[in-house]
Design a binder for these strands. Sequence first.
DNA 1: GGACACATGTAACAAGTTACATGATTGG
DNA 2: CCAATCATGTAACTTGTTACATGTGTCC
Lengths: 191, 191
Amino acid sequence: MSLNHILLGMLREPSTGYELGKEFSEGAQHFWFAELSQIYPTLKRMRDRGWLDTWEEPSERGPKRKVYKTTAEGRAELRTWLRDGPHLGRERLGFIAQTFFLGELESYEESLSIVRKMRAMWEHKLGYLEHVERMVEEDHGDPSHYGGDGLHNHAALRMGIHMLRAKLAWCAETLERLETRLELAEPTPAG
Amino acid sequence: MSLNHILLGMLREPSTGYELGKEFSEGAQHFWFAELSQIYPTLKRMRDRGWLDTWEEPSERGPKRKVYKTTAEGRAELRTWLRDGPHLGRERLGFIAQTFFLGELESYEESLSIVRKMRAMWEHKLGYLEHVERMVEEDHGDPSHYGGDGLHNHAALRMGIHMLRAKLAWCAETLERLETRLELAEPTPAG
DNA sequence: GGACACATGTAACAAGTTACATGATTGG
DNA sequence: CCAATCATGTAACTTGTTACATGTGTCC
């Protein structure tokens, strides 16, 4: 799976299961998500395989924290996964499937309403990613000067932004078609 | 899950497990994929729930075929799923995660090679989808006249095309940055 | 007779979700 | 004392993958 490898990447800086869970609920959710109930046992298994170190630390507030960090062996595994070529094969894009079958509802109003909901969610996500991009640029300046991790982190962010803009362009195109269809079917009483 | 609902949509026209598997390996793989070993037991469970009818037919070539078709109950379930709003939450985009951690390799050449592989795969997919779009237009004419299923099928196809173009735009942007970085690090001996 | 496409499955395992259990500390 | 946040987990279940088993009919 990839969760193992994503955690290997994230845990190059030490962190706890709880903190990782919050990262997945915030920034990282734009390309991956995992529940705490999946994260905890996964961390344990990875430690057993020798990919992670672990120790305990007192919390400022609440019970003691179990901190994990990627080992040298873990980093080797991460590099193998990265070199293993792009892992593209099997995206599951449920919203395309849903669009595909939307004709079943036999109602342009319902289709419109669903596409408008998609647009609202994606606009919200895009706003967040664009905000993150501005913050990064304020902190680190012109992206053309980034090196190493900075460059690749920024590239990942840009991918998120490109994809969301494409989704929104599709929404505009599709809403226009659906609205035209609806007008043809039900001409305005005043018109 | 969504596989149930995707099969409900596909099986409004009768088909067999084997044929559905081929559809997932061809066109449908652009937004979903399922193995035969997942499809067969899923069909059986769906029939047990009353969502599918099934009967046997002789094959032209090879053993007898087990044909399935969505029942009225199945269509009701499909409509419920469609109306249940867009199912967006949890895309898993492993390639963005991979990009994010690519700095670990500490090699612009390796990053370039991976992004070029992504570009090659996506160009190939885009070529296929654009070909499908041309075929659809030849058969059915100007998309602005499509109604019902035709309109929604075309919208799903357009989404695939928009997404792939966004990915390729990102590749161009990212390759340019990586190449600049590489030139700065290793100025040409002749320059 | 061998390769290939047709056709359907099972078994074992890995990954992911939902629901539940437990308890500490802080702020109102 | 109550709610919220911090913090770690288990159990039962669903979903998805990999590997294997079995057999038919056609073309070369």
